[in-house]
Every structure is written in C-alpha cells, then in structure tokens.
Design a binder for these strands. Structure first.
Lengths: 227, 227
DNA sequence: AATTGTGAACCTCTTCACAGCT
DNA sequence: AGCTGTGAAGAGGTTCACAATT
C-alpha cells in the first residue's frame, strides 16, 4: 500500500500535498476541450480560451495546471496535444481500465451503451445479475454472469473498478462482494450510502439528490452555480 | 420574476444571504435519515445521530439547519417528523413536480423505472424521442411522443423541469427546445456543457467525469472525500 | 446532563495582480 | 506585447467551543 506520502517526484512534477476534488473534475473538462482543439489542429491554447469554454477563470486554469507541473509557454499558451496527453496521464486515463458492472437493469445497460465511456478507456468486461432471465445472454458483447462468478472474473481480468447499478436494498450486499473480490473503487448509482473498508473509494451518483438540488434553485431562485 | 431578493420572511425563517449547494445536498440526505427514523417511530433525533449517519460533523448539521430556522430543543434534539416535513418544504419537495423526459433510451428508461423518483414526488408526464420505433408505445405508463409535441405537453402539464437523456450531439438542440417551451431547470445526462438563457438552471450529471475522478483517487491514492 | 444555536477561529479554494519568460 | 506561474489577498465553507436552554 503506497500511502499518500508520494508528494514530490514520480511524475517528475511538483505534485502538491493535496489536490482538490474540484481540480480533478475540472482537469477532466479541460481534457475534453483539448481533445476538440487537437482535432481542429490547434497547436496552442491559452488559459483564457480554456477557461471560457469551461465557465471558469483563467487564473483557475493556470492554478489547476500548476499543481502538476509547468506546461505552458509565456506569451504563447499551452501546447494542445502535449497538455492533452499530460492530463490523460495525470488522471490515470492513459491506459485501459477493465470494469465490472453489477446490475444489468436500465442503468447498467446505459453504462454498456455509453460510447463516451469506451472511448475514454473504460471497458466493461462483464455484467452480473441475480435475475436468471438475464444470465447467459450477452448485451452488446458484454456477457451477463451470475453473482458467484464475480471473484473469478475480477481476478482473471485484474479488475479494480466496479459499478453498482442495483436497487438500494441490494447495494450494500453487492458492495461487500465487490470488496471481498478486491475492488479498489466503486461507482455507486444506488440510493444509499455504502459502507466500505478503508482503502476502497466510493463515488455515489444519486439522481434524487441532483433533482432535489435542481428543484431547490428553480423554486427558491437560489443563485449558486450548479455545475 | 421574483428575483433573489427574498432574504428574510417567507418561510418565517431567517433565510441567509446565500445557502451553499453543499448545504442543500446535505439537507437532502438528512431527509432520508429522518424518513427512516420516522418509520422507526423515533420522536427525537440529535444532531450527532443525524451527523453520524451521514458522515459529517454534528456542528455541520446544526449549522445547516440553523440557516433555515431553529427546529431543535436544547437537551432533547430535533423532533423527527417535524424536521422531516420542514426539510421537505425547504427543498420544495412538499408537492409533486411534473417532469418531461427527452430521450427514451436506456438512461431515460432508467429514470422512468427509478422508484425513488416517483416516491419523492417527481412524476414523468411524458417522454420524447426522435426514433419512430419508440413513438406511440408507452413505457411503464409513460407515453413516448415525437419532439414536436413538447411545447404543447409542457404547457398542458405546467412542466418546469426537463431531463435530457439524449446523445451529446443532440443535447444542445434539445436544450434549446426545452428552453423555448419554458423549462426552468434541466437535469442533463449528456456529455456536454449546455448553454442556456439566463434564468434557466442546468445540473449536469456526467458519468465520465465521475469515473475519471474515481480512477484518479484509486490510482494516485488521492485522499480527498469523494462523497 | 444533554444538546442546541452561533460567533469566532480555522481551513480550503478562488481570484488578484504582477514579476518573469518568450 | 502577450501570456504563464505564483505569492498574497479574498471569499466561502467547516469546525470549535461555549453560552443558552430544556
């Protein structure tokens, strides 16, 4: 367990004590703009352009990037392709990530269909479900297995990431099974807070909460930024 | 247009200048705990209990609630049912919200299937799609209409909230159509930043970003809280 | 004795502003 | 002249700690 004491060195960059979640999320968005810019054969891009297309300030862009190194040229801006690849590396998206999906319902299938996902280097090696009617058949090339095969499949494909797309009541059980099979990160769509052993990271996407915050701002004219 | 100048009065509470997005999201979570507590016939609950079940501090809970009024009794805690209803009111969830859904693909159908959604007072009055094969038939009681009927249906049902569950390339167009039909808030599942006229609020749920942040923390042992 | 409500301290993230390169 | 990189200032959100209340 290489604990969080890898401050400097590694990427050759001056990685800061603690990068914020917001910075990482923005990096992910900068990447998209850079992807487009690269397709348009733009060679350089300024923090300003990057900022405008993301609804943030240019200082924010420069600060975010500065946590990881110095990629720009003063007077010129940032080299598009280079920065794009750099961000890819920072995010850890410079290689493929095998993923298991638990729950072959609508959300599960939506994840399988999600082209952007595959394009980003995630590939779902298998789905798992308890519903016998879903087993055996494969959806868009993704086989659907019974739960008991989870540990085996995860080991074989060296899977570290799992998606939980089951009803709230089964979510914790599934989460435990993933944990036992050595998962490191879970994307949780269930309407529940998952309890996990230390070392495993969970990101919950809860559509009710998103809708409720939306309703709040619509209703009360709340004026904070939602994105 | 009742602008954001309704600081005090209204709920009889001392509504603060600006409530943060985080506070609203937490409120939404407190509500869930209170719902459960009410089912268990608990009459009072302390900020501590509320905090523990949400992974926050008790001071945070008290501060969050204090923005909207004083609901607790010192030495006793908060009255469960009363606080539950109060939060429901604050969030604007004390009545039903008709919603239109654009895109009857997997994510769209997942939203229709999402029981928690209906239970919270959102009901999808209709779905819209461009695929002729999907039109006419209804999914779980939700009719699927062609796009041109959007304005009419939104007017009839006085819909203020729309869900965008179409591919990235169509998202902005759909968003414009929603805007023209008088939408106030949009929940966007497309992998794009939507540009909207002022006054319309957009909440984007981008699964790629969620996965990428997850990968970052898994990969780099990032240690910030993900939830 | 227990627990709230809240000003003040603290911490974290964002923006400013400008020196330093190209 | 243009634009980055960054220390310092500013804003915003969280936690502390304690008086007030039941």
């Amino acid at each position: 367990m290489t604990s969080a004491a890898e401050r400097d060195g590694d990427t050759g960059g001056r990685e800061r004590d603690q990068i914020s979640l917001s910075t990482i999320r923005r990096l992910s968005r900068y990447y998209r703009v850079l992807e487009t810019a690269a397709e348009e054969d733009l060679t350089h891009i300024s923090s300003n352009q990057l900022a405008e297309r993301n609804g943030v300030t240019s200082a924010q862009v420069r600060k975010d990037l500065s946590y990881f190194g110095t990629f720009g040229k003063r007077g010129l801006g940032y080299p598009v392709r280079e920065l794009r690849d750099e961000i890819l590396h920072i995010l850890g998206m410079d290689h493929q990530w095998p993923v298991v999906l638990v729950g072959a319902g609508n959300i599960g299938r939506a994840m399988i269909d999600y082209v952007e996902f595959r394009r980003r280097g995630f590939f779902i090696v298998a789905a798992f479900d308890v519903d016998p009617r879903k087993l055996g058949i494969s959806y868009k090339g993704v086989p659907v297995f019974p739960m008991f095969r989870l540990p085996e499949v995860m080991q074989t494909h060296e899977v570290e990431i799992g998606i939980v797309a089951v009803p709230a009541l089964s979510a914790q059980r599934v989460c435990n099974q993933l944990a036992e099979s050595g998962v490191k990160g879970i994307l949780n769509f269930a309407h529940t807070r998952l309890i996990v052993p230390p070392g495993i990271r969970v990101r919950t996407v809860d559509m009710s909460i998103e809708m409720e915050t939306l309703v709040y701002v619509v209703n009360k004219n709340g004026s904070f930024p939602l994105d």
